[in-house]
Design a protein around this nucleic acid. Structure first.
Lengths: 139, 139
DNA sequence: TCTGAAAAATTACACTTGTAATCTTTAAGA
DNA sequence: TCTTAAAGATTACAAGTGTAATTTTTCAGA
């Protein structure tokens, strides 16, 4: 867990795509992000610029440096934390905040393969083991 | 599974609240919904009317009857299907469509209790069993 | 030092959403 | 039948979002 109860800004759909570039690459200039997204999207560079500026305004990005006339940005929020905040928000909206109904719905809709089920079970087995013997203190 | 690959309209946050009333109560008039939401929200009746009209326009509700000058509406989409569509959309946006990373993030963030873990494991055990011996045909 | 290209800032514009207020129609009772 | 309250329809309006175009600033080279 990167930070307990971090406050993360609202990040829209298109903005998520941009944030992921930063989380993948670390500090990046607008040009870097435009280049990175060139292959994955058909966005106009101006669009990417706008999204970066909005993310900066929202406080999801901060200026890490200025290279000549170019800004280098860096995320102020951890990917983990944003994912978790988005998950909580989604679960709250659709499943009354509860994880089990979410997974039950997925399973009912036959949207989970045998392999995935096994993967999830292993994940939960490990989690259960961790709950058994609590995390040790690194002191 | 109510319907394979149903097409469900985009349902916004506030609209979810309204749809849930219909899913809970079945066919309902605007007045019914307003009454039902009176306790749970502080929405103005006009707001509820607007949301119902938007849902009707989107095709999420259809007119089931007309009582005097009052319409009775009914959902055209199953709660299950809407939940699943919302889940797919969320997972696609935040976790590249993958369930395992979603759950892993949740567990990492210590947002899952021991009891919940056990519940989820039971759920997955049943799902695994179903995968073992496929569903029988009701003929 | 002046200029032009590149970066950034400002402006644009339609659609959705939250949250109603106002205008219009209609049914039911006086 | 006429009136009026209650439904419904239309309109409102700001914030957020997708998707840029236009305008302004500024560095780097001629």
């Amino acid at each position: 867990m990167s930070n307990p109860n971090p406050t993360v800004p609202q990040i829209s759909d298109a903005e998520w795509t941009v944030m992921r570039v930063f989380w993948d690459r670390g500090d990046s200039s607008t040009g870097d992000v435009i280049d990175a997204l060139q292959s994955r999207t058909d966005w106009n560079p101006k669009t990417v610029q706008t999204l970066i500026r909005r993310l900066h305004k929202k406080g999801a990005l901060e200026v890490a440096a200025k290279n000549g006339r170019e800004f280098v940005y860096r995320p102020t929020v951890a990917e983990n934390d944003c994912e978790h905040a988005a998950s909580q928000s989604f679960l709250g909206r659709v499943f009354d905040g509860k994880l089990t109904p979410f997974l039950a719905n997925f399973v009912e809709n036959e949207a989970v393969s045998k392999e995935e089920i096994d993967e999830l079970r292993r994940l939960l087995d490990r989690a259960a083991a961790d709950h058994q013997e609590p995390e040790e203190q690194a002191s």
